[in-house]
Amino acid sequence: MVKLEDSYVPLSQLPEWSDVTPIPQDDGPHPVAPIAYTQEYAEAMDYLRAVMKARELSSRALELTEEIVWLNAGHYTAWAYRLDILKHLNVDLYSELDFLSEFAEVNPKTYQLWHHRQEIVKLLNDPSREHDFIAKLLATDSKNFHAWSYRQWVVTQFNQWDGELPYVAQLIDEDVRNNSAWNQRYFVLTRGSTQDLDRDTLRREIDYCLEKMALAPNNECPFAYCRGLLKKFGTHDDWLLIRAQLRALGGVANAGDVAAARSQYAWGLLLDTEEHLIREATEEEGLTARRAEVRRVRTNFRV
């Protein structure tokens, strides 16, 4: 393991590198926007050029890639080369997972880290450490885009749907405004947009939304989630239900002065609900009356 705090010993002074002639970077005579690299990085890159040119898939080259990604986390070429070496050397890939876990603590938002981890887990065909690995990072940043995206891959690839809903519910309990968790909830319930919701599940989700809406009416998440579910899976009765509930929620219809009445999200969803019902309506059901209702809601919405 390369320790950054160790005093820097140039590779050129190490006997194990004595047979390699480093290849310096050639930016040309008057480059635009050159970067003043640290000596450590510049030298490591000179050696990387040399070993890559020779297609050397060795353990010292593996160590070199590790040094480079510690110095420059987004170095996609070093990551890709590292993967080639790992495949070739047949080393213990679980130790690679350990390295990646440590690396992720410092660089949780590097694209390459996540992609590399995915490739390693594919090779191992073992997701057993992934749940904890991701959960630990989400505990630090509960909206880490890469972590959630990767989590979806793990869940889908290894059919780990069980347990995901309680986990997501827990994160929503911790911060009801965590939209990444809400997005994951939709992902879990629809099994990655491959599955319909049965009636009971849909009603349960609507109730869940209503509870969270009441908790913090100016939080967009449950309104967007509810709208998404209804548009995809809702029946006429479901839309009627949500209309009634939204009106009840803090007396929206009467524009009372409670928090819910000031919620632009409550008004927005109510407006969409009325518009949906209009599109469904026939003349017998009183289309004209419905239109008047939409005008009324929209006027309130603008105010």
């Binding site: 970067i35 990085y41 420059n72 987004g74």
Partner: peptide, 12 residues
């Protein structure tokens, strides 16, 4: 004209 080593991460 040039960037310091703190921009090293932009090298790739």
């Amino acid at each position: 004209r040039g960037l310091g080593s703190n921009s090293q991460g932009l090298d790739p």
